[in-house]
Structures are given as structure tokens and as C-alpha cells.
Design a protein around this nucleic acid. Structure first.
Lengths: 220, 220
DNA sequence: CGGAAGGTGACAGCCAGGTGACAGCTGGCA
DNA sequence: TGCCAGCTGTCACCTGGCTGTCACCTTCCG
């Protein structure tokens, strides 16, 4: 699957690209409207992630262009403003989905995957490991059928770890993806949050520490 | 995906049909209420775009009919009048979405797609959770057999939350669907209305807040 | 045994969300 | 037309809990 990220915030674009690459997608990045159009002309993308505030040619215009040319690409709009008006306008322009900044990176990745799956079978994505089940759509988490009262940050961390599917995830990676990308690199909040999450997950332990590489969901 | 457009303005109907065909949908048009009913009886549509001011059988009646027969079709109501009351009534009748004329064509297309994509809890003529029962057709709400005196806005909000079936619904989403889409994005009316609704719903609480995500009907 | 990585509990600031008072609007009615 | 009542939005203020920091402890490993 081929994805174009049209986003002028270089760090953000690269972080998203990294996440998608890890999920096996092919990713290109365009830092301004002009190059986005050029890349769209040259290559057939499955999904286009489109910042509304794009320098050069604004995202709205690119969206209109894609719709007008009956491009088969699905469009996911990003916007800084969170107003209702923006949302309506975004969808009105023909975008397939819409995400206001700031967003949870894992959420973005999930939405891109949902878009990539052709419409039809409604997507009910559920994450889980053993008796632990997470439903991102409903914001619910259960263990052995028992509901877990997770705070938003704890929930986001757990979702990210589950999506990592057993791979150890470093504190830095969590900081970048679950927290604001401008987070203080010396913060200790990750270990605190993981600690609280662990306590709520209960026994037997499913969230393990891999020394020097990070945290991991899985067996022993 | 199969869509029925029940709209007596011939030009408008054809323009919409053309746009939907271009997005790969199968489209039929009914120019009056009678033929709309006939086509609905003959064919299973995913989405019905329903003009309220339909000659023959009015759109409201068709909507009621679809809800009463537990049709799986999703209903998008169109209406010339733009009043809030209209909007609330439309949703109260059991429509899934509502669009006042004049509308932006691309917005209509986007909404139809959104409806089609929506995972399919079938439309019911009665909404409810636990001892709470809502009858959109008769605009009545009861809890544990006791009638609740809900204002129109409160009723519409509750109906929308019940249709979301446990999924958290953001204030933004409520604003867009229950209020006028041109609503002030910084308004605090949602939390006020939800507060009043909560007070009327009584104990035990069924309307919960999910921090950073919205409101949700359900257990704890 | 010493240092670094990781865990834990206490604490405080802040902000999302809740609440009550009030006022404007609207629709019904005489 | 003027009055009244109920619905709905705004505003100011409150509060509870989420989250980050910090100090200190434990564990691991060379």
C-alpha cells in the first residue's frame, strides 16, 4: 500500500512516515503543496494524508483537485483548528476522513489503515493480547471480562503497545507517538504512566520491561 | 452500494445522482412519495436520501414507515426549512442524518458515504438502554416506566447518544448533528444541555463522560 | 560492590468538565 | 399589540482528577 503524506511540519511528517513504514506501507512525504501535486501526478497513491495548512498550494485546493479528477486515492485531512466549521468544510470538499490536530499518532495510523481497506465491511478494530481486550472506538479496555478504568494517557500507551504487537517500544518512541512530539526529552512521565498502567492491568503481568530497549506486551 | 434519492426537484435529483454514480454507487431516483415507497418495497437500499417536502406521501411518513418496518436502510433527510426545530424533528423521527437546503453538494456526498460506512446497528423504532426507553416516533422517553419530561434538545441529544450505542460521542459531533452545523464552535451549550439531561435522567447514572473523547450511554 | 536503569509513592498545578444564575428569544394567547 | 412561560445559550465560578515532577528505593549487571 502506498501513502503520500503532505505535511509541512517536517518532524511530524517524518514521525508519521516512520510509523507507517513499520506497518509495511510504502510512504512518500511532500513538504509543500507544489511537490504534493507533482508526486500525485507521478504516482498512484492509495491514501493521501493532507494538511489543510499546506504552504504553496493549500490542502483544500489539492483536495478539490483530487475529487475533480476522480482520483481513486482516499483523502484524510489534517487541520490545526478544531472547529466544527472546519470539519464540515473538510468533509464537504470530498475528504474521506478528517482528524483535528493535535491527534494521537496511533489513531492516525489506525485511520489510514481503515481508509486503505476499501469501504464495505465496516471496520470494528479491536486490539488485544490474551485475556486483555481494547476497543479504541469505544475507549474501553477489559481484562478477563472485567472493565479497566484507564485514563486517557494510559489508554493511549496501552493501545500503542498492543499495536506494536510484541515488539519492545522505547520510552523515546512512546514520547514521540503518544505524547506531544515537542515533549521534554528528560521527562520521567513515561515510566510513571507505565507504572500506573501496570497497576491497573493487574496479574498476571502482561506489560514487561526489556532492559535497555523498552516496554513490551506479551508472555514472560 | 445502493442509494435511493426521493426528491421531487428533478434537476437536483439528477445532479445528486450523477455525483453519486461518479463515486461508484448504484443510484435510483423517485420523484414522488408513492414511487419512493414502491421502490423501497422492491429493493434493499443502503441509504435513502429523503426530501421532507415530497409530493404524494410526505417524507416524514416514509421515514416513519421505514423505522416502523425496521428497514436496514440509513436515512438522510433533506429539508427546505432550516430551523432548529425541523432539524430536531427530523432526527426525532428516526432519520440518521439531516441536511438543510441549500446544501453544498460535496457535503451531501460526503455524508452519504459516512452513513454507508457507519457500522450497522440496524435502525430501531425504539431506542433504549437498560430501563431507559426512547420512542422517537412518539417523542416520549421513560425511565423505569416513569415518563421523563425532556425538552426537544435534550431529547435529540439522548437519541443521538443512544444510536451511538455505547460509543463515546464528542461535543463536536453532537454540535454537528444535533445543533445547526453553523454553530459557534466555542459554545458551551453542549455541556449545559448534557448537564440538564443528566439531571432529568436521574439515578443510577447512565450518561457518562469519557475524558477527552465525549459522552457515552452505558454502564459505569 | 558501584553505577545505571527502572520502579514507586507523594504531591501539586492545571484544565476539562460541571453547575447555577440569568437573560434573550420565541411561540402561544387574549 | 402586549404579556407570559418555557426553552436554550452564555457566563462566571467551582472542582475533581489527570498528569508531570521529584525524591528515594530496588534491581540488574559488569
Amino acid at each position: 500500500m502506498r501513502v503520500l503524506i503532505a505535511e509541512d511540519d517536517d518532524r511530524l511528517a517524518r514521525a508519521v512516515a516512520a510509523g507507517l513504514l513499520r506497518r509495511g506501507m510504502t510512504v512518500d512525504v511532500a513538504l509543500d503543496g507544489g511537490s504534493a501535486l507533482a508526486q500525485l501526478a507521478a504516482t498512484a497513491y492509495d491514501v493521501v494524508v493532507l494538511d489543510r495548512d499546506l504552504p504553496g498550494v493549500p490542502g483544500d485546493d489539492i483536495c478539490r483537485h483530487l475529487v475533480a479528477t476522480r482520483s481513486p486515492s482516499r483523502i484524510l485531512m489534517l487541520t490545526a483548528a478544531r472547529s466544527v466549521r472546519d470539519r464540515v468544510e473538510g468533509l464537504g470538499l470530498g475528504a474521506d476522513d478528517y482528524l483535528p490536530k493535535p491527534f494521537d499518532f496511533t489513531e492516525l495510523v489506525a485511520r489510514i489503515q481503515a481508509l486503505a481497506r476499501r469501504p464495505g465491511a465496516p471496520v470494528r478494530d479491536e486490539l488485544g493480547y490474551a485475556d486483555l481486550v481494547l476497543d479504541p472506538g469505544r475507549r474501553t479496555a477489559t481484562r478477563a471480562g472485567r472493565k479497566l478504568a484507564l485514563n486517557p494517557k494510559e489508554f493511549a500507551v496501552l493501545a500503542y503497545l498492543l499495536r506494536a504487537d510484541g515488539r519492545p517500544v522505547s520510552a523515546e518512541e512512546l514520547l514521540e507517538h503518544v505524547w506531544d512530539s515537542a515533549a521534554d526529552p528528560f521527562t520521567t512521565t513515561v515510566k510513571t504512566t507505565v507504572g500506573r498502567l501496570r497497576a491497573k492491568l493487574g496479574d498476571p503481568p502482561v506489560l514487561h520491561t526489556v532492559r535497555d530497549s523498552g516496554y513490551r506486551i506479551g508472555a514472560e
